[in-house]
């Protein structure tokens, strides 16, 4: 059961989006997030939505997958929706049992919900089309300038690589320890919340001990393979950016500009109203 957990759901493929340089993909995702947060109007949000739908279409992944990434955040969406629905002032439109819902509340709620959904969906395009390892490489490459201020970029990415590598191993180990403790009579999935939390201790302790042992052995194996930090290191795979990466990034920046212009349009319309 615990084995089914996947971190960073990557779906291998060979689409245009898959082949984009991961550094540019991170950049485009950032631009997309800016789009969502700079949009003040439904029109602006609509432009961002269209941008998302087109880029998702380019991944060649089934749209059904999106429901998978939205599912876990449904409670959050509903919660924020409720809060917004009842606590925003405006012209009342619905009155049930003394609860007043205003037009402004409806507008803000719908706006928020669309924004959150797009935010989650948009960032999952990045994780769906980029493997965690490549993502780590991209982060290392983006952070590289920080080396100048003695920020340990290589060490950080090495740690991330190793963490990603050991997640499945440790999950498997947890599974084994759980079975071993169950065989010794541990009750892991019954009893009160406190009891269940306490039952985790005999699982976590062996897990920690074995992780330390693994870490020690890994360090030794790395040293035997001439590991001496990031200096003078070469890479089997280097990230390379091409024309299509620049085009994709430019297009997304243009769309961001479009959204900002739409915002300004709204402002000028309002301004026009007030002057009349």
């Amino acid at each position: 059961m615990i084995k089914d957990i996947t971190i960073g759901q990557y779906f291998p493929g060979n689409s245009f989006v898959h082949r984009l340089d991961p550094r540019f993909k991170i950049g485009i995702t950032a631009v997309f997030i800016c789009m969502l947060f700079s949009a003040d109007t439904f029109a602006g949000l609509g432009v961002a939505a269209v941008f998302f739908i087109i880029s998702y279409g380019l991944t060649g992944l089934p749209y059904k997958l999106m429901t998978r990434s939205i599912k876990p955040i449904i409670p959050i969406i509903i919660f924020t929706g409720f809060i917004n629905l009842f606590f925003i002032d405006g012209v009342p439109v619905i009155k049930i049992f003394g609860i007043i819902i205003t037009d402004e509340a409806l507008r803000v709620t719908a706006f928020m919900m669309i924004r959150i959904i797009l935010l989650i969906c948009g960032s999952s395009v990045l994780t769906y089309t980029t493997s965690p390892i490549v993502l780590t490489d991209a982060i290392e490459s983006i952070l590289r300038p920080l080396n100048k201020v003695h920020f340990p970029v290589h060490e950080l990415s090495m740690m991330m690589t190793i963490a990603l590598r050991f997640i499945p191993t440790l999950i498997e180990e947890t599974d084994k320890i759980m079975s071993a403790q169950k065989a010794r009579g541990a009750e892991l999935d019954s009893g009160s919340f406190m009891n269940r939390a306490k039952a985790l201790i005999p699982i976590l302790i062996p897990l920690f001990v074995s992780s330390f042992r693994r870490a020690e052995e890994l360090a030794l194996a790395m040293e035997c393979r001439c590991y001496r930090g990031g200096e003078g290191r070469t890479k089997l795979k280097t990230l390379s950016s091409g024309l299509s990466d620049y085009i994709a990034l430019s297009v997304s920046i243009l769309v961001l500009c479009g959204v900002i212009i739409i915002n300004m349009g709204k402002v000028s319309i309002l301004h026009a109203y007030t002057t009349i």
Partner: peptide, 27 residues
Amino acid sequence: QNPDNQIVASVVEDDCAFALENMGVEQ
């Protein structure tokens, strides 16, 4: 002894390249 504790990378070929990367071998 334990192969799990010697493999550094999440892809077979990346792991195989680890020592060479450390030694600064050309791509």
